[in-house]
Design a protein around this nucleic acid. Sequence first.
DNA 1: AAGGATTTGTTCGTATGTATC
DNA 2: GGATACATACGAACAAATCCT
Lengths: 246, 246
Amino acid sequence: MEQRRVERRSGVALWRQIADRIRQDISAGLGDENGRMPTEMALAERFGVNRHTVRTAIQALVQEGVLRAEQGRGTFIQRQRRFAYPIGPRTRLSEGLAGQAHERRSHMLGHAYEQATPEVAKALEIDVGAPVLRLETLSEADARPISRARSYFDAERFRGFERHFIETGSITAAYRAFGVEDYLRRSTAISARHAGSDDLEHLQLSPGAIVLVALGLNIDGDGRPIQYSETRFSADRVELQVSMPD
Amino acid sequence: MEQRRVERRSGVALWRQIADRIRQDISAGLGDENGRMPTEMALAERFGVNRHTVRTAIQALVQEGVLRAEQGRGTFIQRQRRFAYPIGPRTRLSEGLAGQAHERRSHMLGHAYEQATPEVAKALEIDVGAPVLRLETLSEADARPISRARSYFDAERFRGFERHFIETGSITAAYRAFGVEDYLRRSTAISARHAGSDDLEHLQLSPGAIVLVALGLNIDGDGRPIQYSETRFSADRVELQVSMPD
DNA sequence: AAGGATTTGTTCGTATGTATC
DNA sequence: GGATACATACGAACAAATCCT
């Protein structure tokens, strides 16, 4: 086993480095068949730190729901499945998680009519300062928050879009009210960063958690841009699956 | 502009959070045409912290080579741009960064012949325990490390692959020596996590940095799996670009 | 059933790092 | 630079729950 050390004086607390490492090792399949973790003493020795420091890390992971500690018995991995979120020409949130989750839903956190920033204007191919609708949404699967999205629509074309979305809970259905029967994902740019305070709250993450950020552009049947969105996924709960057409 | 705050009691020191944010903002194109940064006072106010804290963050970035501070004049951006790495059916490292970097190269850090783990065996459609070649590589663009990859090949079919790779520095060329004229990317799974110490070293990152992880499977012209790989990209320097065929 | 060993939980104290003013 | 407050990390001991012989 490769022995990776924790770094002192790095600006990242030891307990957080250890928590990140353990979380990562769990994704890689650490733990015996019962999901039992090594003892606190063993972990402390392995990382070269005091037992208290390991305990702080474990407490953070218990808080996240990754581990479960039982006095006198040990610490166990709390089984969590990672959702595979497909990204492709026909990317749709509702279908994406079909078959993986029993219950899934999206709801709107808020909306606003604003003026297009240069970035948004360029993506939607409208003028800078033109009216756009900004939609803030949260998606859940099996009662666990999965993603947090901010979407922009051309307000000239889609004024009142938010009301249809609230009624149906579906972007696809809301589009139909505006005569858009079909749409495609033209491009997606994927990056990653630490979760901001907004994500920490809505995605129920702990400070230091990582979010995958997908910048996407949807186009209608005529190839015109209709939606520009930034979606943040909890990196612990989701992986993005890019599949190629055969 | 959305104002994301720095978090106290997160196990990540404020100065490091601020350093991460600044580095990220620079990738996104912060700074005026001369590369001048806002003053320390302005940054302190923006992040809601003391000026000393901002100074600590700036010193860390100067140490990394991201910023350059000149007494009496100000702080300036040293270099830095974010590469867009395309992912699609014809994903190839060498072509991926064409046009974005003047100089790019891959080199091998090491190789080993091993027995296939269940994960690798399943991906390559061979038996568990069958011999596989593991290749550890590092890719650079304009003298900056971009990605770190671990690839597995069926050793029955590709024994000696590493010698051809060393000679040519190209996966595509090495394939040709084994009669594989063309290959496709069948699937890519993207996730993100904190960089491990191996990545910190090879990708020249600081503790707490984030890496994008792409698990990919390549197939030959007959649809048979030929390469299973895990590639880690520095999230600060690369974004993954998923483009759809028209 | 008893008791020792193991493992997590808690409480002291002390030193150092981080951040503010 | 110095004073102050809080977070982080270590050390030692003990308590509580569980396991095993």
